[in-house]
């Protein structure tokens, strides 16, 4: 066991990646819990894919700067989310198909951008993450995003919960819309902060899997968030060690660990019965 943990003491990059992924797990826990309650898991997935072209554009314009890539990714994902929502509201298209359509377009543009860069961008690192990539700036980004996330959620918490429970709760006011938009922006911020370690393809894994697993152990919101945080941190630590020892990309390694916890939860979880659906 201690042999397994030893590399953490030896390698600074691994400690940084560990700190970064644990920060992300803490930041993503309450978001993921609300994402699932709002039935937006797949929308989160779509927004994660939409980060890619923005991150590539940031790289092509400013080189390997985490801030440029994060800003690009944020703009791209927010644009996709707003366009998809607009199309669903203004036309006869459903929101899930408009999101699917736009994230596919974004993903394709992103991959074309990588090809056009003539090998300067490592697609595998962008899609699947890399423990080596986390520097001090990356850590600062994750910590900043986590802080904004918890503060932001504290502000919109009640509005978000009540408008999730009952979409028309806030009647003619814009409170529900503002809460929803803020929530979506926080999700995108987290996906952007996560793409270094997890990759754009895997970033949503730490958002969705721990909270999906937690639902098999708890019902109340506070317990759901607490258990989600715990599962996220476990997945992050074990995933990074797995990534190091088995020489795997860090994103899939962390997501595999989260997935294992999820499957165990489905089989052994204590909350077995579906809630009333009316």
């Amino acid at each position: 066991m201690s042999d397994w943990l030893l590399p953490l003491a030896d390698f600074q990059f691994l400690r940084r990646a560990l700190a970064g992924s644990m920060i992300l797990a803490v930041s993503m826990a309450p978001l993921g819990t609300m994402l699932i309650l709002r039935r937006m898991s797949l929308v989160g997935d779509a927004m994660a894919h939409a980060v890619l072209p923005g991150a590539v554009a940031g790289f092509l314009l400013a080189g390997f700067s985490i801030w440029a890539m994060a800003l690009g990714g944020f703009i791209a994902a927010i644009t996709v989310a707003m366009l998809a929502t607009l199309i669903a509201r203004r036309t006869r298209e459903y929101e899930d198909s408009s999101f699917a359509a736009l994230y596919l377009i974004a993903l394709a543009i992103g991959v074309i951008g990588v090809s056009a860069s003539g090998g300067r961008v490592d697609l595998a690192h962008l899609l699947f993450g890399s423990v080596l990539a986390v520097d001090g700036d990356g850590l600062a980004l994750a910590a900043g995003v986590a802080t904004i996330t918890w503060l932001g959620l504290a502000v919109i918490h009640r509005a978000l919960v009540l408008s999730t429970l009952q979409p028309g709760f806030f009647a003619e006011t814009r409170i529900g819309t503002v809460a929803h938009a803020t929530f979506a922006a926080l999700v995108v911020l987290n996906l952007v902060a996560a793409f270094q370690i997890l990759g754009t393809l895997m970033a949503v894994g730490l958002l969705v899997l721990p909270s999906a697993a937690a639902r098999h152990w708890a019902t109340r919101l506070e317990s759901l968030i607490a258990i989600t945080t715990l599962i996220g941190i476990c997945a992050a630590v074990s995933g990074l060690l797995l990534s190091f020892h088995a020489d795997l990309p860090s994103g899939p390694a962390i997501v595999t660990c989260a997935g294992a916890i999820y499957l165990v939860s489905v089989i052994a979880g204590t909350r077995r019965h579906p809630e009333r659906s009316t």
């Binding site: 999730t164 429970l165 009952q166 009647a171 009316t278």
Partner: peptide, 20 residues
């Protein structure tokens, strides 16, 4: 005024998965 109007829609508008 809108703030003094209560509207009770049909029950199906509540998503009871949300733990409140």
């Amino acid at each position: 005024p809108a703030s003094d109007i209560a509207y009770l829609a049909q029950v199906s508008h509540l998503d009871l998965r949300v733990p409140v």
